[in-house]
């Protein structure tokens, strides 16, 4: 799906739902359209702010390069992890075919 021309007042719900990997029904798309446009209309209030020269704050207490010693630590049990997959085949997780046959 091609990227739509930026429109700051309306969410292109169909385009965004595809990016988010959610298959919406027509009714859902219409409902979310109205609700999300309402939220956008509200958050446009941020345009009132003069944000020139302000550093974006992505984290409450910024920290860099948190490292640990390169030593093995206990990891969750593999069996327990695999058992949570919806479709397990031996030690693999089954998914629909991804590539055409060669």
């Amino acid at each position: 799906m091609s990227q739509p021309t930026p429109d700051l007042d309306h969410v292109d719900v169909t385009y965004v739902a595809n990016l988010a990997r959610i298959e919406l029904s027509a009714a859902e798309t219409e409902k979310f359209q109205g609700e999300l446009d309402d939220v956008l209309a509200y958050i446009h209030q941020l345009n009132e702010l003069d944000l020139e020269g302000i550093e974006p704050m992505s984290h409450p207490h910024p920290r860099e390069n948190v490292l640990r010693e390169d030593v093995p630590v206990e990891a969750p049990d593999r069996e327990l992890l695999l058992n949570n997959a919806p479709a397990r085949v031996q030690d693999l997780i089954r998914v629909p075919q991804m590539m055409e046959d060669a």
């Binding site: 941020l46 702010l49 944000l51």
Partner: peptide, 12 residues
């Protein structure tokens, strides 16, 4: 337009 703006406003 949205995400970076909100991060800057968060600093305020």
């Amino acid at each position: 337009a949205y995400y970076v703006k909100a991060l800057k406003a968060r600093a305020l």
